[in-house]
Amino acid sequence: MFAIPRRYSHFVFGVIQSGLTSLIAAGIASFPAMAADNFLWNWLASWLVSWAVMSPIVLLAAPTIRSLSVVLTREESLD
């Protein structure tokens, strides 16, 4: 696979998790913004809905993402 040293796996995890989170949150947030007359209220409502939806998704996806970050990285040799 990739040759990223395992000591950077937390960065790989963060990139994958933030990508998934922002993908879903942006999709949810874009629906109210289509016909928005009051940006701040729509943003706040979208953020609250996105947060409520993302909490269980992140909790369920985190172990898989953690495993994927281990697969995408390698142990460093002591050379």
Rank of each mutant, 00 (worst) to 15 (best):
S77W: 02
A26D: 09
V70P: 02
S46E: 10
A29Q: 11
S69H: 09
S55Q: 08
P32K: 05
M34E: 14
S55F: 14
W47I: 10
A36E: 08
F13H: 14
V53A: 00
G19R: 02
F2Q: 13
V58A: 09
V12C: 03
A33N: 08
V70I: 14
H10M: 11
T73H: 06
V15G: 09
V12G: 05
R66P: 01
S50M: 08
T64F: 15
G19C: 06
M1G: 13
M34F: 12
A33R: 13
G27K: 00
W51P: 00
F11L: 12
W47G: 07
R7A: 03
S67A: 14
P63N: 03
S30K: 10
L20R: 01
L48R: 06
Y8F: 15
I24C: 01
S18H: 08
S50D: 09
V12E: 05
L60I: 13
F13V: 02
S9W: 02
W41V: 14
Q17H: 08
H10Y: 15
S46R: 08
A62Y: 13
L20P: 01
V49K: 04
I16T: 07
I57E: 03
A3I: 05
L23C: 11
M54W: 01
R74A: 04
A52E: 04
I4V: 15
G14N: 08
Y8S: 02
S30Q: 14
L48T: 11
I28T: 08
N38Q: 11
A61V: 06
A35D: 14
T73A: 04
W47S: 10
S69V: 05
P32D: 07
R74G: 01
W47F: 12
V15H: 04
P32Y: 03
L68P: 00
I16A: 10
N42A: 14
H10T: 10
P5I: 08
R66D: 12
G14R: 07
P32A: 06
Y8K: 02
S50E: 04
S55G: 00
E76W: 01
V49W: 02
W41T: 13
R7E: 13
T73G: 03
D79W: 04
E75T: 03
G27W: 00
L68G: 00
L78V: 06
S77N: 05
L78S: 06
L20W: 01
S22L: 14
H10V: 10
I16L: 15
E76C: 00
S22N: 12
A26Q: 10
S55P: 00
F2R: 06
F11S: 02
P56E: 09
S77M: 02
Q17W: 06
A33K: 08
F39I: 15
P56L: 12
A3M: 07
L48Y: 07
A3R: 14
S30P: 01
T64A: 13
V70R: 15
W43M: 12
I57G: 03
L60E: 02
L23R: 09
S69Y: 12
R7D: 11
N42Y: 06
F13K: 08
L68M: 11
L48E: 09
L78N: 04
T73P: 07
E76L: 02
T73D: 03
L40I: 15
A45I: 15
F39C: 02
H10K: 13
W51T: 14
V58D: 01
S69W: 12
L78Y: 04
A62D: 06
F39M: 11
E75D: 11
Q17S: 13
M34N: 06
V53M: 00
I57P: 01
W41N: 07
L72A: 07
